[in-house]
Design a protein around this nucleic acid. Structure first.
Length: 585
RNA sequence: GCGCCCAUAGCUCAGCUGGAUAGAGUACCGCCCUCCGAAGGCGGGGGUCGCACGUUCGAAUCGUGUUGGGCGCGCCA
C-alpha cells in the first residue's frame, strides 16, 4: 500500500519544536513532543504543551519557556504564526495556503489518500470470527467480523503487512456432536427413529445436511439402531436427556458402527458449515487470507511437540491422571489441564500450539479478536507464550462486548440453546450489509452495543449510515451536474477557499490521515465511524450555506475541488469500514 | 468470594498516552425548499463526568478505596 504524498503538519511542527528546544536544553527522553488539534479556532490549528513539560526542570514559568521556544523555532512555509497562550500553550496557526494546497494531495492520491507508513511493513496477523463450524453465524459473531475486518483494513492503510485469519475448530468434540446429530437426522429420514438428544444440535440446518446426504447416497449409511444404543440407559433414550458422558458414548458407538464412513460424514458436515460460513462472511464484505485448521496441528504433530517443549521447560506436572500446565507461574488464577485423563488433548493444548505456530510464521504482532466471554482465557494463553519464551506483549487480545438487538424499543430475545438465535444472515437481510457493518463499529469494542434494528433500517436522517452515504451521493450529484472533468480539479487553483466554513472543512480533511493512524495505533475502528459522521455533518452544513455551481470559474473550480476531496475521503473512510459509497440513493 | 470490562446531557455514546469554557447524535421547542438531492440545514434549553480520597501547575482522563451494572471463574470450545 503506497502512502500518500501529503505533508504531515503534526510531525513537521513537532520537528520544528524539537529543534527549538535543542537550543535551550537537552531533552529528557521522558518528554514527548506532541501536537494536539485545538478545539477552538482562536487557539490556532495545533497546540503543544512542551513548555509546560519543560518549565519545572528549567525553573522558569511555562509562558517564559514557551516564548523562548517560539524565539528559536525555525521558519516554515506552512506556519502563519505561533503564539503563547493560556497557561503556557504554544499555539500554531497553519497558513491558509497550506490548507488550500492540501486538496491537491488528496485529489492526486485518490484511493490511497490517508495511507501512511506507520506500520513500516511489519507483519501483523488479525485472527477473528473463528466460530465453531457447527452452525450458522449469529449476530455476536457479526460484531467480531465487522471489527476484525475493519481493523485489518485500517492496519493495512497504516502500512502494516496484514494477514487475516480464521481459526477453524475442526478437531473438537463439538464437531463430533454435529456429526452425530446429522447422522441421527439421516437415520430419521430412513425411518429409523432414535430419540434425538436434547444436547445435540437442534437447528434445522442439521436436517438439511441429512437430506443432502440422503439424496446423494440413499441408505448407504443406515445401520441397525441397537448397536448405537449400546451402553446407554433406557431412560436416557426415553426422555432424550443425555449426560455429556452418554452423548460421548453415542459418538463412540457411531464411530464404531460407521468405521470409515464416520470420517465421510464428519468431513461432509464440516465442509458444508465452513462453506456456508465463508459465503455468509463474503456477503458481509469479510474475507480471509488463511483458514487455519486446528486438526492440522494434530496431524503435523505440532500439539505433541508443543507439549514436549513445555515439559522440557518443567512447566508441566501430573495430577489426577491429567497433565497440567503451571499457568499460575504467570499470574493465572489456577493451573490448566493440557491433556485429559483419557489421553485427549484439551482445546487449550492445541491453542498453545497454534499461538506458537503464529509466531513461528514470523508475525511481529498478533491480534486476536475474542468475544468478551473469553476474557478468562487471556492469562493462560499469555502465560503459555511466556513459558515458551515469547513476548506476551506481541499478542494483543481485543475483547468484543456483546451486541444486544432492539426492536420497537425492546430487546429482541436471543438464546443460542433453543436455536432461536438471530443469525448474521437474518440481520443482513433485515437491515442490509452497510448498516450492519457501520452499526457494529459505531462503538468502542469494549463497550456494549445496543443495536437498534428500526434505526438501522430507517431511510432517514436519523440513520448515521445514510447520513454519511447521502453526503457522498450529494457530491456525486453536484459533480454530475457540473459535467466537467473531475481529474482536472487536482490542479485547480484553490486560493478562493477562504470562508471560515471552508477553512474548517480543509482542516477536517487534513485530520483524516491522523485519524487513520490513531485508529491503527489504538485498534479502534470506531474512530473512523465518528470521523465520517463529523465530516458528513460539516459538508451538509456547507452545502446548505454555499452554492457550488457558480459562474466565476476560479471560485467554481476551487469549491468543486473541495467537495471532490470530501467525496474522496468519505469514500476511503467508508471503504475501511466495508461500507459502500453509492453515487445515488 | 476472586478476576476482567463498564459508569459522562432524559436516551445512545465520543472525549487520543493528563491540558484551555466537557462534545456529538437522538428526543423536546422554534425556524429554513422560486435555490446544486429537505435522506439536508439553522437556532434554543439540557451536566456535581457514579461517589470519596490521593498524585500536580492542571484530572472526565492517572492511583487507591467504594457503590451500581455486564461477563467469566470445566479434564467445554
Amino acid at each position: 500500500m503506497t502512502p500518500s504524498v501529503h505533508p504531515n503538519f503534526k510531525t513537521h511542527f513537532a520537528e520544528l519544536l524539537h529543534q527549538a528546544a535543542s537550543h535551550i536544553t537537552t531533552l529528557d527522553t521522558s518528554i514527548r513532543i506532541e501536537l494536539a488539534r485545538t478545539k477552538q479556532a482562536d487557539h490556532g490549528d495545533y497546540s503543544c504543551n512542551l513548555a509546560m513539560q519543560l518549565a519545572k526542570t528549567l525553573r522558569k514559568s511555562p509562558r517564559e519557556v514557551a516564548q523562548l521556544l517560539i524565539d528559536k523555532i525555525p521558519a516554515s512555509p506552512y506556519l502563519e504564526r505561533i503564539e503563547v497562550a493560556g497557561a503556557g500553550f504554544i499555539n500554531l496557526f497553519l497558513k491558509h495556503s497550506a490548507k488550500q494546497q492540501y486538496l491537491h494531495s488528496i485529489l492526486q492520491s485518490q484511493a490511497e489518500f490517508g495511507n501512511c507508513h506507520f506500520g513500516q511493513g511489519r507483519k501483523v496477523q488479525v485472527e477473528f470470527v473463528s466460530a465453531n463450524p457447527t452452525g450458522p453465524l449469529h449476530v455476536g459473531h457479526g460484531r467480531g467480523a465487522a471489527i476484525g475486518a475493519s481493523l485489518a483494513n485500517i492496519l493495512t492503510a497504516a502500512g502494516f503487512n496484514v494477514s487475516r485469519e480464521f481459526y477453524v475448530n475442526d478437531a473438537g468434540r463439538q464437531m463430533d456432536i454435529l456429526t452425530l446429530s446429522t447422522w441421527l437426522r439421516y437415520l430419521e429420514l430412513n425411518h429409523i427413529h432414535v430419540p434425538f438428544p436434547e444436547n445435540a444440535y437442534q437447528g434445522g440446518y442439521v436436517k438439511t445436511m441429512a437430506q443432502l446426504i440422503f439424496q446423494a447416497h440413499a441408505e448407504r449409511y443406515v445401520h441397525h439402531p441397537d448397536l448405537l444404543l449400546e451402553g446407554i440407559p433406557a431412560n436416557a433414550h426415553a426422555t432424550a436427556t443425555h449426560t455429556d458422558e452418554q452423548l460421548d458414548q453415542l459418538i463412540a458407538n457411531a464411530k464404531n458402527i460407521l468405521g470409515q464412513d464416520y470420517a465421510y460424514i464428519h468431513n461432509f458436515v464440516l465442509t458444508e458449515q465452513l462453506g456456508d460460513c465463508r459465503n455468509d462472511l463474503m456477503e458481509f464484505g469479510v474475507e480471509f487470507d488463511t483458514w487455519f485448521s486446528e486438526q492440522s496441528l494434530f496431524d503435523n504433530g505440532l500439539v505433541a511437540h508443543t507439549i514436549q517443549l513445555l515439559e522440557q521447560k518443567h512447566y508441566l506436572y501430573q495430577q489426577d491422571g491429567a497433565i497440567w500446565f503451571r499457568s499460575t507461574d504467570f499470574g493465572d488464577e489456577k493451573d490448566r489441564v493440557v491433556q485429559r485423563e483419557n489421553g485427549q488433548f484439551t482445546y487449550f493444548a492445541s491453542d498453545i500450539a497454534y499461538h506458537l505456530n503464529k509466531f513461528e510464521r514470523g508475525f511481529e504482532q498478533v491480534i486476536n479478536i475474542w468475544g468478551a466471554d473469553h476474557h478468562g482465557y487471556i492469562a493462560r494463553v499469555k502465560g503459555a507464550l511466556q513459558a515458551l519464551e515469547l513476548d506476551p506483549a506481541k499478542l494483543e487480545i481485543l475483547l468484543v462486548q456483546f451486541a444486544v438487538l432492539y426492536r420497537d424499543g425492546k430487546k429482541a430475545p436471543m438464546s443460542t440453546r433453543s436455536g432461536e438465535f438471530v443469525t448474521l444472515r437474518e440481520l443482513r437481510q433485515e437491515v442490509g450489509k452497510d448498516a450492519a457493518r457501520f452499526f457494529y463499529v459505531m462503538r468502542k469494542s469494549d463497550q456494549h452495543l445496543d443495536f437498534d434494528l428500526d434505526l438501522a433500517k430507517s431511510q432517514s436522517n436519523d440513520n448515521p449510515v445514510y447520513y454519511v452515504q447521502y453526503a457522498h451521493a450529494r457530491v456525486c450529484s453536484v459533480l454530475a451536474q457540473w459535467d466537467g472533468d473531475v481529474a482536472l480539479l487536482a490542479k485547480a487553483d484553490t486560493d478562493a477557499l477562504s470562508s471560515p466554513a471552508e477553512l474548517a472543512l480543509l482542516q477536517k480533511l487534513i485530520d483524516f490521515p491522523d485519524t487513520v493512524e490513531m485508529a491503527a495505533k489504538e485498534f479502534s475502528p470506531h474512530l473512523i465511524a465518528f470521523y465520517l459522521r463529523e465530516l458528513a455533518s460539516e459538508f451538509h452544513s456547507y452545502y446548505n450555506s454555499t452554492r457550488f455551481l457558480v459562474p466565476e470559474i476560479p471560485l467554481l473550480h476551487a469549491r468543486l475541488a473541495l467537495i471532490a476531496s470530501i467525496r474522496q475521503i468519505l469514500n476511503n473512510g467508508l471503504r475501511l469500514l466495508g461500507v459502500d459509497a453509492p453515487d445515488k440513493m
